[in-house]
Design a binder for these strands. Structure first.
Length: 115
DNA sequence: AGCCTGACGCCGC
DNA sequence: CGCGGCGCCAGGC
């Protein structure tokens, strides 16, 4: 039998993304690890690509790849929407990459007490 | 079932 | 430090 429930996975992703505070951002891999599926970073991206953030309010724009690059910007309304959303809360983007990524990065695993 | 693709990540070179 | 290769897993054909 498989313990993996897709709907459950999707909800876990949504919930974890919502914990990312304004002015910070995290990565697909960090989300995947924090919900117990360390090898599912690609699936996190797939889920966010279908989350319809405009309607659901899920801050998908706060999730980028492990290098701080806005790899999902094409899924937003305009080519600059993702960058603008981040800029509104003080996260600067240059050449499609978050500036000071190491400082902006927010790791759910370290910020959320799991023990 | 096999092959290709994708909002990924890590390791080499 | 950019670039390629490979591992990863679910979906569409």
């Amino acid at each position: 039998m498989s313990n993996f429930d897709k709907a459950d996975f999707i909800q876990a992703v949504y919930q974890m993304v919502k914990t990312v505070p304004r002015g910070r951002a995290t990565s697909y891999g960090a989300i995947a690890r924090s919900i117990g599926y360390p090898n599912m970073s690609r699936m996190v991206g797939t889920v966010l690509g279908n989350c319809n953030s405009a309607e659901t309010g899920i801050p998908a724009y706060r999730v980028v790849n492990s290098q701080g690059i806005l790899s999902g910007k094409d899924a937003f309304g305009t080519p600059t929407e993702m960058q603008e959303k981040l800029a509104e809360e003080g996260v600067m983007v240059e050449n499609n990459r978050i500036k000071d990524w190491k400082r902006v990065f927010w790791d759910p695993m370290k910020e959320i007490a799991t023990d």
